[in-house]
């Protein structure tokens, strides 16, 4: 991690790379993250935090390019579909053990 200032004559120095990208790709990336995290059960505040915080480089880059309003719209659209359901996971009882009630085995 670059704690010190960059040293341009160090061959191991990190370098940034610019490749052509388009707004359509940025939009698609933002939509992909919103949909995936909505499917994982994250809340609106949690997903928005991913975009707003600089540590999540991909999502944050999209937030800076598209702006808060567009990101909020993308997140809300995703939650309107994937946020309406909650998946629950129910473990099978352990082998040979008495069958505990479902609510004991349930995780969400």
């Amino acid at each position: 991690m670059p704690y010190a200032d960059p040293e341009s004559d160090d061959p191991q120095e990190l370098v940034g790379v610019e490749l052509p990208g388009s707004e359509a790709q940025t939009r698609e990336m933002a939509a992909a993250f919103a949909e995936e995290f909505a499917q994982l059960g994250y809340t609106r505040a949690q997903i928005l935090a991913l975009y707003r915080r600089a540590e999540y480089a991909g999502a944050h880059r999209a937030w800076r390019l598209l702006g808060e309003d567009q990101i909020v719209r993308v997140v809300d659209e995703s939650l309107a579909v994937w946020g309406r359901i909650r998946r629950v996971v129910i473990d099978a009882p352990a082998c040979g053990a008495p069958d505990p009630p479902t609510w004991v085995r349930r995780r969400s």
Binding site: Y3, D5, V15, G16, E18, R61
Partner: peptide
Amino acid sequence: RGVRNQLDPTGEQLPEHKTWF
């Protein structure tokens, strides 16, 4: 460097990868 317990507000110190990744 020298600023403790605080992240850089824009996240990058080096030239940024301005692209899809």
